[in-house]
Design a protein around this nucleic acid. Sequence first.
DNA 1: TCGTTCGATTTGTCCAGACAAATTTACCTT
DNA 2: AAGGTAAATTTGTCTGGACAAATCGAACGA
Lengths: 247, 247
Amino acid sequence: MSDPRHPPKTPRYVEIFKALRKDIAAGEFAVGALLPSEASLCARFNVSRFTVREALRRLQTDGMVSRVQGAGSRVLRDTPSGIFVQNYRSVSELTQYAAETNLDLLKVEDTILDEDVAARIGQNTGETWVLLRSLRRTPEGAPLACVESYVPHRFKDIAPDLARQSGPIYAGLAKAAGEAIDRVDQETQALPAPYQIADALGMAEGAPVLRILRRYASASGLLIASFNWHHGGDRYIHRTRIMLERE
Amino acid sequence: MSDPRHPPKTPRYVEIFKALRKDIAAGEFAVGALLPSEASLCARFNVSRFTVREALRRLQTDGMVSRVQGAGSRVLRDTPSGIFVQNYRSVSELTQYAAETNLDLLKVEDTILDEDVAARIGQNTGETWVLLRSLRRTPEGAPLACVESYVPHRFKDIAPDLARQSGPIYAGLAKAAGEAIDRVDQETQALPAPYQIADALGMAEGAPVLRILRRYASASGLLIASFNWHHGGDRYIHRTRIMLERE
DNA sequence: TCGTTCGATTTGTCCAGACAAATTTACCTT
DNA sequence: AAGGTAAATTTGTCTGGACAAATCGAACGA
């Protein structure tokens, strides 16, 4: 998207945010200790208070710093806090989420729909689809979720775009649905974790997980079905199977 | 905590945030439409751009508005977006969370520890504790979680304070632990939902849920054990059983 | 010893302005 | 009609300043 010869300039407050995060991780500012005051950080980085506060706000959002009026900013953790698990209730939400995060492509491969999945989402068993496995990150690089997307094989040539951008296909979907799509039903099952899921979540194979199937529909029929696998811990898998109706 | 004769002044940007949210909910600004530009909002509310941007930032955080440089602010939803589910990995995090949210007391009653719970958290079966059921909300009023806290009976007289403030007891705990506490272990079980949980979550009794037990310990021994019940949907129950070591 | 008062420190709120960067619109050219 | 360019619009980044509100600690007094 952005011209590699003119890499996007990172804002000053992001640099400061990263510098402070690095200092915290390195033990420069210990957990439980106070950070330097905003004023002294202004002096150290030679920026205005606005810029420092914007950086501190990010540390706070990541759960690494607590800020109390009159008392200062205290280091809570030396790594970003637990992963947020959010449920998306409309394509708009999913689009927004995609627009605000990054996606690193881990794997692209052909796959054959198994019986269970095909039956649940109304496709034919044995169809060849494309599997994209990627890692979704915040703009700051913190891992958010492992995403496995199934795309009809005819869209295979746009896979690299999907990997780099990920926004367009959701945006296209949203536009195709005229934003008039919403969840119609949801189904939860408690299952022992399949080995792929267990591996991605870093848990023992067969440990209990929940699998939630959601079907989103528009006036013209089924548009998206997504599987979310998760346990109660810190990590989370969001498996999205994307289906496009013929236009 | 705050003198009722001098109610805490709400910041201007919160008022503007609420006003805009109300307008959106009322259909004044339709989903999919553009909001007025920051400049015109400044004129309408007679405030600086900083204040308007702070209000818009909140709308964005709630998932109601998308903001794109050069293109304007667009309404994504007319209600706040899905509930966040976050896992707390230290008392500090829980304290931070408690400090940033409000708690409405729904119920206070004596209760007797059942065998299962008592065994897991290392207390005696049959002990009488106090059960507080409350609803945790964001500062803006959006429901976050249903919380059931078990408190030793000798703390019953501070229950009203717990209900209104909720911060102090967590803060006290954190201070007692010298901030040097962290999670030591976690255990997940898949269970059919007990009727109280099913009722609170609005699901069928016996539907699959996960129950996660976390034990937090300090150098001086067990301090907190918490049960989190949840399914994969939008709602979430955080049951915290609080135990205080003799000081 | 305990509680109070007061001042210093620190973050929260808010203003007015400036320029950058991205998008949209209008217009012009072909 | 199509495409490309420039201007207008809109949000992003950032400065410098001001005062308010909350906290903390030291000095003080009962």
